[in-house]
Amino acid sequence: MHPSRPLSAGFACLFLLLAGACSSASHSVRAVGTGTALPPPDTTNAAGAYEGASEYRLGASDLIEISVFGVDELNRTTRVNSNGQISLPLVGGVIAGGKTVPELETELTRRYAESYLQNPQVTVFVKEFSSQRITLEGALKKPGIYPLTGRVTLLQAIAIAEGLDPLADLRAVVLFRQIDGQKLAAVYDMRELRSGRVEDPQLFGDDIIVVETSGSKTALRRFIEAVPVIGVFWRPYY
């Protein structure tokens, strides 16, 4: 994974967005669930990037592996181009963008069966979910936007950004996610995550992770202080 340019402007906007929510701790947040099993995001705008996810819709730059049982010469690993297409032997160009894995399997089975094979068995596997991205901001060595390439957890994402900055507050790692049309946030303690006492959550496309700096006095800090239990999911109102 390679990040895009730093997002200092976007980070500032996030703080401004939270500022209205954090003016009153008693009214700015409320619990919407307990524990650490975070709900997945809205499937309409942030499909989960994980192996075998039937609802995931392919997009540009996704790397997919196509296998035709018993016909090794038709097996291919190919990347979806910017127009959402892939090119395969015998069938030529095929629109993959916007399709789920089962939908693409059905389409390829139909195309191969039309003229070339009897009862073809086509399997599609997503090797890199490059069309899904996460944002890593704050006290990290390399903040930025990173593509999801398979299943990624919060700890793995921080490692992808080359770890925490020395000034990072280990108790103030915030995960933002869009669920049921609303923005939600979960606060995590890195020490709890690393020890395994708190579940390391899986990330999805469009997740935003912000790591606060020790001793800071920001809107995000006020939001974090309003959350009494680390690892509980909360909804910030703004």
Rank of each mutant, 00 (worst) to 15 (best):
A60T: 10
H2M: 05
R30S: 11
Q132F: 02
S216C: 03
D42L: 13
E114P: 00
T213N: 14
Q156E: 13
G52K: 08
I209K: 08
G98N: 05
F176I: 00
G205D: 03
E107C: 01
V32F: 04
S67W: 05
G150C: 07
Q178E: 10
S131A: 13
L203G: 04
V232R: 15
G98Q: 04
S87I: 11
Q182I: 01
Q121L: 06
D206M: 09
D165Y: 00
G20S: 14
T213L: 07
Q202I: 12
P89K: 11
I160S: 00
A49K: 04
V211L: 02
F69A: 14
C22F: 03
R5A: 07
S214D: 10
I230F: 04
T109V: 02
G98H: 00
L175V: 07
V29T: 14
P102H: 12
I230N: 10
N45T: 03
L104R: 05
I230E: 11
L63G: 11
L155I: 06
C22T: 13
S61N: 15
L154A: 03
L90D: 05
V174E: 12
L136I: 08
P201I: 01
S67R: 14
D72R: 15
E65Y: 11
I64K: 01
D62W: 05
V227Q: 14
L18D: 04
D72K: 15
L175M: 12
D72L: 11
A219L: 03
L148C: 05
G10K: 11
L175S: 06
V232G: 10
L18H: 09
